[in-house]
Amino acid sequence: MTERDKILQRIRLALKNPAPMPGAHGSATGLRAARTAAESARDWLPQVGPSPGDWMTLFTKHCSDLKTEIVVVGDAAAAQEQLRRLALAEQWQRVATHGAGEAAEAAGALGLPVLSTDGGYDAKELEACDAGISGCDALIAQTGSILLTARSGGGRALSVLPPHHVVVARREQLVPDLPAAFAWLHHCYGPADWPSMMTLITGPSRTGDIERILVLGAHGPKKLTVLVY
């Protein structure tokens, strides 16, 4: 008998005695089918307004609380211009990006040496870049998060190894809440085409491990900028 079978056997034996439903304190009255988080999360999670305008207001507020820089502009050209200003202000020497989408275009327009993670890269070189410029799957108003995957984010490390992560996003990528974000993931990648990494990024890397005092840039990027057009 394998260890797997032994464990499964112990589990089945243990489950012969049913546990009371949470909150029922052993009483059989009021039993019903269990609610699931997947189906009802939206009913309990923090309120999000009905219109995309509300979502943007909420997203922006979260960004300021989280110390994410957010810049909303009119079109792709304006987004590129914003990126140029950032590059200048922070004196970037080299940037990293991926793919051929808006992020890569904006990065390319900087006129700086560009490391593309497409087809692999050297970790030391990526680490030495001043910024990682990526796309994303969605922005989430409810929590101020950026949803990106190994595909939309240029791999696992681009968004976390360089000291400044810049996300280039389109307005219509903003979704109201977490249930919508998960629905989007299912829609794009389900049932069996999942990227090997999908992440919700909520503010620049941080720690409170020393006396519970907030410090940004613990291991991941110290700065996070979202350029939305």
Binding site: H62, T143, S196, M197, M198, L200, T202, P204, S205, G220
Partner: peptide, 12 residues
């Protein structure tokens, strides 16, 4: 926090 900084799902 509303969410912690990184919530990452690994699938392989």
């Amino acid at each position: 926090q509303p969410l912690t900084c990184y919530n990452t799902m690994y699938g392989g």
